[in-house]
Amino acid sequence: MFRHYIAACAAMVISSCSPDNSADTNSDALSTNEAPVKWRMTSTYPSTLLQIGTSGKRISTELNKISNGAIELKFFEPGVLAPPFETFDAVSYGAVEAGWSTPGYWAGKELALQLFASMPFGPSAPEYLAWFDFGGGKEMFEEIYHTHNIHSIVCGLTPPEASGWFKREINTLDDFKGLKIRFFGLGAKVLEEIGAAPQLIAGGEIYQALELGTIDATEFAMPAVDERMGFYEVAKHYYMPGWHQQSTFFELMINLDAWNSLTENQQLLIETACSANIRHAISEGEALQPDALERLVEHGVQIHTWSPEVLAGLEAAWNKVANDMQNQDPNFKRVWQSLQAFRAKYKGWADRGYLKNN
């Protein structure tokens, strides 16, 4: 409700600055002394990558529109300004003003940031947003990032991912032992706990690694994205549900000094554009998956559902990993405990308010 209110307010501000009122626009700009913003945004993902990358490109385009050209956030493909996994440092040091990524990539900087991307057996998109916006998540998120001279804004949110592509069937937890698998974030820690050999590989390198046998399996995203990546050509066993990523946050990272240089109105425009981007990502993401699954079946993919026994084993491993991580890192502990306390309360509502098959 609050997000819709802010969006409506911003829309009224923008409509008053339409091309038909160009004289008013110029006088308003002079009265507020707002200098045009021209920033570079490096991306961890290519702009052609459905949802994950296109949402980054979209925020660039939409922000330019709603600001009437006053805020230019120019999208740069991975590697043009900075390598994909160096986005954090590039933004922190001010080498670029902004970056498009997900907090889950920055475990080497702050373990707790992984909890602001996705988590095994974690919340669905509505619950995740509720905790972030109204359960204390946003305040901790900003506090952690500010210590690294970054102001980050949650700017995208995708639906559940798949568990991954495998060249052979996986029927028990023992089948994971020794498996070389590309895996993301906290889910990789879980697989390591049960004996797999997870590794993080940039998206553009996964197909070749899977094709050449450098890895035996991979997860990456949701069906519509995985289809575009072509994984079905080199692996035919596709597993669900995505126990490791039931929903995933994406972020607009901004150098803190650059953020503080903006006026309150400019900051509000960026936040409003990100709120609209989240809505678009959720609705588009959910709409794309049914047809994608049908096409994958037509390509000869076998879609498997994890057995209750395998899911129970993975969840037990995750609980151990989470406990170990909170014991080793104070930021992880406070974020984890905040999220767990919120989820415990939310469960009382979810169990009563939602049909079980939703």
Rank of each mutant, 00 (worst) to 15 (best):
R343D: 14
S31A: 13
D24H: 12
G348Q: 09
L63Q: 01
F342L: 05
A162H: 13
E315D: 15
L252T: 00
E97H: 01
N358R: 09
N358H: 09
V190N: 00
L186T: 06
N26Y: 11
M1F: 06
I270F: 03
S43N: 07
W259F: 06
K138F: 08
L111A: 14
F220R: 00
L293C: 06
I282C: 00
G135P: 03
H237A: 07
A11G: 14
F75H: 01
K345W: 15
G187M: 00
I59S: 01
A70C: 12
R182C: 09
A11L: 13
N327I: 09
G136P: 11
N171P: 10
I282Y: 02
E97V: 04
E169K: 14
A82L: 02
Q51D: 14
G104M: 02
T248F: 06
L113Q: 01
T32L: 14
L63D: 02
N171E: 15
G99N: 04
H299Y: 14
A224K: 04
L256P: 04
E284C: 13
F116P: 00
P78H: 06
A107D: 13
Q208W: 09
N357Y: 13
L179C: 05
A10G: 14
W39L: 06
M140L: 15
V297R: 08
H151R: 15
L113V: 00
T248W: 01
W243V: 03
L293V: 08
A350R: 15
